[in-house]
Design a protein around this nucleic acid. Sequence first.
DNA 1: TTTCCATGACAAGGCAGCTTGACAGTTGAG
DNA 2: CTCAACTGTCAAGCTGCCTTGTCATGGAAA
Lengths: 63, 63
Amino acid sequence: MRNDVRELRLAAGLSQRELAEALDVSRQTVNSIETGRYDPSLPLAIAIARHFHRSVEEMFHAD
Amino acid sequence: MRNDVRELRLAAGLSQRELAEALDVSRQTVNSIETGRYDPSLPLAIAIARHFHRSVEEMFHAD
DNA sequence: TTTCCATGACAAGGCAGCTTGACAGTTGAG
DNA sequence: CTCAACTGTCAAGCTGCCTTGTCATGGAAA
């Protein structure tokens, strides 16, 4: 899965740490998702999409 | 997370086995998701939503 | 230079997601 | 009744997601 997290985070002027705090996860988790180490869990994916006012399908797409 | 998988599966006239085959997962995985034992992974959630022509957010909602 | 923030990455550990195989209970067809 | 399909659940095992802690690198500010 590819995702648009980094683009949207930067567009929002947030650091990985700030986004992590807003999502209540660790900085490493945000970094791992952005760098494609792994996909977020379903609830986290929904929280991320919600945070950026996007749908899950818009933010996460099959590679 | 609650989900509408069972309702939609039954409305489509499918058995757990048939849905599992359509999604390329095991019958136990479909059963576990329907009975709330655990949430699907993000890619599987997207595949399920897509199968039933719904959005992820429509099918999977915070409890 | 020194300090601070941001990022990338690794390790170890815990729990979640998924697998195959198996068993039991229920229901419906014959 | 017999048989098959459907469902629920368990066990064991593997891998993925997320944690805390740590380290290295780079850039900006003072």
